[in-house]
Write a protein that binds this DNA or RNA. Sequence first.
DNA 1: TACAGTTGTTTATTATATTGAGCGGCCAAG
DNA 2: CTTGGCCGCTCAATATAATAAACAACTGTA
Lengths: 186, 186
Amino acid sequence: MAEGTGFDLGSRLKTLREAHNLSQRELAKRAGVSNAIISMIEQNRSSPSVGMLKKLLDGFPLSLAEFFALEAPPKPQIYFTAKELVELAGGPVSYRQVGRDMTGKAIQLMHEHYAPGADTGAQMLTHDSEEGGIIVRGRLEVTVGDQVRVLGAGDAYYFDSRIPHRFRNVGEEECEVVTANSPPSF
Amino acid sequence: MAEGTGFDLGSRLKTLREAHNLSQRELAKRAGVSNAIISMIEQNRSSPSVGMLKKLLDGFPLSLAEFFALEAPPKPQIYFTAKELVELAGGPVSYRQVGRDMTGKAIQLMHEHYAPGADTGAQMLTHDSEEGGIIVRGRLEVTVGDQVRVLGAGDAYYFDSRIPHRFRNVGEEECEVVTANSPPSF
DNA sequence: TACAGTTGTTTATTATATTGAGCGGCCAAG
DNA sequence: CTTGGCCGCTCAATATAATAAACAACTGTA
């Protein structure tokens, strides 16, 4: 059965079809598919495959990007509850980003938590931005190039992200950091 | 089996996943789906349903619109061969539009062909634009409000589309018209 | 070596989407 | 009133997607 995609794909398709004065059968013929499936999809009784949806949209024609763009409410969110911060990596190191998609934005703001002993991995990180952070709680070892430093609550760092770097929680308790990247790295 | 969607959805997903340093299993766990299907999708051996793709993208997170937008080459097309004009309605009346999607554009330019006797339908048309056209070949009866007029090659019309209107080919041969709407009506 | 932990992949099974045919309803022409 | 055509919808059969479990390859650890 079709499950919730978060929006009413069926109605959207139906509206589009009727805007072009096509019957289900006409559209089906254009797309080279059965008319029955169009009925099902429009009632949200079937969740079409991407390939199927592509075929149907070619009948109008409209690209997949254009189709979904019409649904996307482009209202920029301003306030975020703690629960709305978005987990990027998970695991012993948690990156919780402010905002869903930062591509095109200037700043990637994150709330990070390192479990005791956790680090950012074996190999040094490198990306084309600048970054900084302020340690809120715990003790964080910050390595940038050949410089190593352990920072505590209230301390901060700022460097060019193209320099290889890594982070590690060297304390006994969880370490909490607020960081910012510009431009966003992923 | 998966069919061609016109672009490499599998690689796209894989790139995205790896950019977030997630294994197939980690992503699967986040999305609440089987890890096997991710392997299949990334190899393009399965065309995911829209619902499935939605679940996967929520793991990053990224909206469907954002996902497909990354694939869409937004290069505005300038030149169109006759075959590239896009058929909107088909049937005895043919509307062939210049450009795939005119939403957000100022003008909807169309090359229209009316079979002998063909018209735009029983009920009068109404939409919130202005429109004009020049008859290239044949004889077209144009009705706007309470005014009716038969136009021939070289003649033209222009009116506010909110006034109920209709068109009919009253000649023996096919009628050919070039029209423009602003803003685009569908 | 052996073991336990990953990784991505494959297989058999189950769930679902899609097909093709047929249904009743509606409208216009004869 | 009939006939024919088109409308959207539903049903049973089939194709495909998605699951759960197992596989081989690779990792680091003892």
